[in-house]
Every structure is written in structure tokens, then in C-alpha cells.
Design a protein around this nucleic acid. Sequence first.
DNA 1: CTAGGTGCAAATAATTTGCAGAGGC
DNA 2: GCCTCTGCAAATTATTTGCACCTAG
Lengths: 323, 323
Amino acid sequence: MDTPPLDLDRLRPAGGKRSSKRDLIVNVFLRQEGHLSADDLVDLIRGEDHRISRATVYRTLQWMVDAGIARKVDFGEGRFRFEHSYRHPRHFHLICKSCNRSSEFLSSDVEALIEEVAAARNFTARQSVLQIYGTCEACRTGRPAPADGGTTELLFARDALRIAIATERSGLEFYTRAAAMTKDARGRAVFRRLAQEEGEHLAALEGRYQALLRQDPQLEARPTFLFFKGAAHGLFAEGAEQLRKGVNDLQALMIGIKCERGSHRFFKRYGERFEDSEGKQIFLEFADEERTHLDLLIREYRALLKRQGRERARRPAARRARA
Amino acid sequence: MDTPPLDLDRLRPAGGKRSSKRDLIVNVFLRQEGHLSADDLVDLIRGEDHRISRATVYRTLQWMVDAGIARKVDFGEGRFRFEHSYRHPRHFHLICKSCNRSSEFLSSDVEALIEEVAAARNFTARQSVLQIYGTCEACRTGRPAPADGGTTELLFARDALRIAIATERSGLEFYTRAAAMTKDARGRAVFRRLAQEEGEHLAALEGRYQALLRQDPQLEARPTFLFFKGAAHGLFAEGAEQLRKGVNDLQALMIGIKCERGSHRFFKRYGERFEDSEGKQIFLEFADEERTHLDLLIREYRALLKRQGRERARRPAARRARA
DNA sequence: CTAGGTGCAAATAATTTGCAGAGGC
DNA sequence: GCCTCTGCAAATTATTTGCACCTAG
């Protein structure tokens, strides 16, 4: 993990002059991984230039927060800490009261629930804080602490990719199965085409995943960062299950529509949060394609419905007789 | 809403003397509803006795926290606030940055997710903080702020009862339907008995709910406090749905077991958190009864399985032939 | 009588501010 | 030269502590 290229710090400032002091502080700050208190940062800075005043550090910290480079976090210690947001998605914290270390996680389920609560109260949420205080494994048991480290960005990408891969894998299964069981020729062709595309997506995602692993050999061993229910077997898994139980062509299309909608939302939501530009691009592109799939399925669904309606209209005797 | 009888403050302190000053501070504090800063409390106290020192207020506040009467909350303002825990279950906060008011909610779904994350990281969680910062409805639109007020205890009880009522209602439907469709006489009797018990529970819960409404006529109008997914149609709703699609006796029992397990957990979990002793008693009692139901269903399931096994053993020819 | 409670003032601790000088554009 | 950044020291804010005194058990 090499030092990230700090070309960004020049882009952010709204209006302000460059200054060697500020640059120094920003650079030292961005090199750090954890959650620094203002004082920690002063000590670090003093190592490189002992004639920097506390006030300047505070001012620069405030400037970084305004510029969006840093986030001020409050662990209830009576002072604030700062974490850089440079390649570091928003997240929640687990805070060990024993060793005062904190580890990070993200849960889109929690985020969804937060949105729900806010909506129910007509509250426009701007940001949310979730902190779990307790004792970490290392402090409770003996020593062995499986390093939480690594760039959060990488962990986010890893987990998002894992979910995406599961999704595409289940999508592939779903469409393959659907193609096999659909009686209607046109519908079968649609499913076959979608199966092929999901296969291509799967390959792309797996390639990207491998690329990530190459960036950090221990990446796979690190603990889960992004929690997402239903991620386990992929977004299409339930749909595939239903197909196995047997459904008609129209139902199969409807199930596909539902899954594809979830999948589109998934890629959109996480694509926007990716800080790794390659991953982001893939996700947003896939979000678009899943939307195309969705439209295709909806069109196909309507068309099939209409065809079946005509079919039924051609021999309405049986129906009228019953009515 | 009359002033609560403050007989409790004498029970809590571990070892300590009574003191008129402390008593005064505790009493004034417990009369307040919102989240007070130490300074707010000093001002309030000064109204009744202007010769009380800030230090004493701080010391008393700390004493109340230790005694479990108060909770220290941190809204990131650079100072702490205090809320009493007297008849006030743990909860999360929505904090309006515009008017600095905060409203409270509880989400057992969020709690479940927190537990899940903590478990995944081998972290023993002692307490969690969830704060949603943003703008409240009153600040965003004109003025009309639908008072969030009322004792949280009442809101908690109201919502827990609503969920319980939905659960029992769906349970009643489930068992009634199950009794009607079960072919096995013994199983039918079990379902009929459970249906009757759920009906009795339902009546008790509805009575309690009405009693609550009498305590606060505006109670029904207040916003949701306790968020619980799947609360909408009751814990047995899905099971009842499945029955409608048609299942055999064994499957019906299995579905009942699953629902009853959820229901038991629900009553247990919320019974423990009830601060209203009547509601608590009902919930814990029901938790026990649901557990009895659960055991009954499990026994019945095993018995039916065995009977069917014997049945099958009596004419094994067909099976052997196929194998 | 004595441990604990209280007031007052001073001490901490984190952070902010006033002001005069330094430095970039 | 102007405007911003910086250092230093003093100010502010929230909270804690030392110490002498007071009071309930």
C-alpha cells in the first residue's frame, strides 16, 4: 500500500492561498490511517517542524473539514477526532472502551432503516452516526487481534464486488433456468440474451476482484466491512428458487423484473459510493445495463400479456359459457 | 400526566447519605422531559435555591448516572446532555441541527443489525449510539410541529402493544385456519386450543391498550416510537398466507413452530424492556405461554411424524419396489 | 464523631480568538 | 500592497478538583 498521490488537496479548497505550513499539515494528516485527535496531529507535525502552533493545526483541521478532506468524529471522549475522507467512504464505528481503538463498518441495511425512520418522522437526514461501544476481541481474549487495517476503500470495494458477484452468479443461474423452461420462443430468446450478459458481467467483476486482491494480498482475510442482508446468495437467488418450483412464462418474467429492479438499485447505490474510479465505473455502467434489462423485461412482459390476451379473445366461448 | 412518585430515588444509591441539596437536584432533574445540559440544570435549580454550586450539580449528575437514574448523552455539541432513565427505555435520537431539539425512537431492527455486526467482529457490545442529524419537519416547513412529547414509556408500551395485537390477531387467524384444514383429529384439537388461547391473549392486550389510551388521550396521534419490520401484519401473517396456499398437517405444524418461536422471542425481548409494570407482566407471561405453545407444537410435530412413520412402515411394499 | 456532601475558587483540557507580523500572488 | 496565513498568548467553555467547612447518621 503506497502513499496515495496527494494531487487532490489542491483541487478542494474553495478560496484560499497555498501555504507550506498548511500543506505540511494536510500531508501528514492524509498519511495517517486512524482517527487522530488534534493533539495527536500536533505531535506528529512537531516531528517534522517543531515551530508549528496548535492554533494553526486546529485551523487547518477546520479547513479540511470544510473542504471535505476530513471528517470530525466524536467518540464521546470529550474531544474530537478526525479521520480523512480522501479514499474513505462514510461508515459506522465499533469502539473498544478498553483499548480505545475503533474499527469501521458499513451496513446498508442500517442505512435503509435510518432512511425509513427519518421518512416516518418527516425528518430530512443529513448525516447519521452509529457507534457501538464495548470490548473488542483482542481485549477480551488474549492478544491475537486480526488486523482491521487496510484502506477502507479497498474493503468497501472488496465487499461490494463480492455482493455483485453473488448477484450476477445468481442472475446467470436464474436466466439460464428461465431460458430452459420458457415455452414462448420470443421470451426464451430474451432470457438467453440476458443470461449471456450476466455471464459477461460476472467475468468483468471477477476480473476486478482479482485485481483488487493483487493490490493487497491479505485483503481476503480481513473482516467484513460492508454488511448487506440477502447478499449471501445474490439478489436473484430467491427468484431462481421460485423457478425451480415451477412457474409459467409470465410469472418468470415478473420475477425477473423484481430481481432486476433490486439489482439495478444495488449497482446504482454502491456505484455512487465507490471511491475507486475503476470499480465505480463498472458499477455505474452495470447499473445502466441492469436498467436496460429491466426495461426489456417489462416490455416483454407487456407484449406477452397482450399476445395471451389476443389468444384468449380468439376462443372466448368457454369463458362466456362459464360466466 | 402527573408528576411520577419519586419513591425510586431512595432505592438506587449504593452507599451514601441523604442530602437536601442532592434531593432537590434529583427532583428537579426528574421533573424535566428533554435532554438537559449541566448548565440548563444549574439554571433550573437556581430558580428554587440560588445558593447551589455548579460543582454540586455536576457531582449529582455523575451520581445519578452511576445510580442508573440518568444517562449521559453526547450530541456532538462539545458538552454533554443528560436524560433521565426513570421510566424511559433506551432509544436512539433524531437531532435537528436547526432548532437543536431531539426526538427519540427505537428500532429493534437496528438493534438486531447491530448485534449481527458485533457478532461478526467478535465484539461484545455494551451500548450503542445511533444519531440522525438533519432538519426536523417543523424547521423545514412552516411551524406546525406535531408534538413529539409524552412519556417515552407510554409510547413504547403503545407500540409494543400494537405489534403484540397484530401478532395475536394473525396468530388467531392462523390457528383458526389451521384447525379448519387439519385432517388429523389430534392436531386439529391442538390448533383449536391454541386459537382459543390466542383469542384470550388478544382480548387482554386490547384491554391494556385501551387502558393506555385512557392515560393519555392524544397517545394514538403521536408519531411511531418503536420501529419493527414485519410488525405490520403480525408475526403469523406469513404463516397464515402459506396455509391459504394449502399445506399438509405436518407442514402446518412446522409453520406454527416457526411463528411461535418468533412470537416467543418478541414477547420476551420487549417484556424485558417494558418499564410499565403491568405491561411488562403481561408480556413476560405471554412469552412463557408462547413458549408452552411452542413446546406443544414441537411435541405434536414429533408425534405426528412418528405416527406417519408407523403408517408408512405398515405398507412398505411400494417404497421398496421403487428403491 | 466521622464519612460523605457542599461551596468556592483554582485547576484542567480542548478549542477558539485577538493581534501583530510573515508570506504568497 | 492586499489579503490570507501564522504564531503566540490570552480568552472561552465545559468539567473536575483541592480544601475547608458542614451535616446526617
